[in-house]
């Protein structure tokens, strides 16, 4: 049986590395260029995303005005319209789709989305224009902190998204919109009447 053969072959030739235990490393230093929010915004811009900062009271009116045909997948009614069994042709017609991100990562602008946010897993990729709203208080510094925010064992599918889909496969020329969303807009939401301070 192949599995047994492979495992035996590994056991027979088990490597002896001068092991440095992965646990023997001090936490890495984190230098913050300004606040977490500023760092996050800068990373997202580099990744090709557009950023809008709104107070939570302005959110609905802004979204309705900016994208009249938007599908807001934070609403149960919309989620019910696009279940996992929805035909792909229907999903392929989506122009603007909105999801709530769970948290963001300052060092690279990545935003974590998981299946509980997605009635169909293909949605954030198949939409032409992706809009993610994120609580401005939910930003961590690095990927090492990011992986402490959730348990992979609770997640069937999850993705970090940083920017619109892109490619540079033709002469290293950067083009947005390879296969996934052509544009990404991130709405950073702050609570009304309150300036959030960060313990940077």
């Amino acid at each position: 049986m192949t599995k047994v053969d492979i495992l035996q072959s590994i056991r027979k030739r088990r490597p002896v590395f001068p092991i440095l235990s992965p646990d023997n490393f001090e936490p890495l230093p984190v230098a913050l260029p300004g606040s977490l929010i500023e760092w996050f915004k800068k990373s997202l811009k580099t990744a090709g995303a557009e950023i809008i900062e709104l107070k939570n009271t302005e959110l609905d009116s802004h979204i309705a005005a900016a994208w009249p045909t938007i599908l807001d997948f934070t609403q149960p009614k919309i989620r019910a319209e696009y279940p996992a069994s929805a035909p792909l042709d229907k999903l392929n017609k989506i122009e603007h789709a909105l999801f709530a991100g769970n948290f963001g990562v300052a060092e690279n602008g990545a935003i974590w989305i998981e299946d509980k946010d997605l009635p169909h897993r293909i949605l954030p990729f198949i939409t032409q224009h992706l809009i993610l709203k994120l609580d401005a208080g939910k930003i961590v510094a690095t990927m090492q902190e990011a992986y402490q925010q959730f348990k992979l064992n609770d997640i069937e599918f999850g993705v970090f998204i940083s920017g619109p889909s892109k490619t540079a496969d033709i002469e290293q020329s950067l083009v947005y919109g390879a296969h996934g969303a052509k544009e990404l807009t991130v709405i950073l939401v702050t609570l009304n009447q309150k300036n959030i301070t960060h313990n940077d």
Partner: peptide
């Protein structure tokens, strides 16, 4: 937690990006 280390290194070292656009976890 090991993913936290490798996702910091991979795209930076590959193409000079902070991370790839999509880092997908299929379970």
């Amino acid at each position: 937690e090991d993913l936290g280390v490798f996702t910091r290194l991979l795209a930076r070292n590959a193409t000079g990006q902070a991370i790839t656009t999509y880092t997908s976890h299929y379970r």
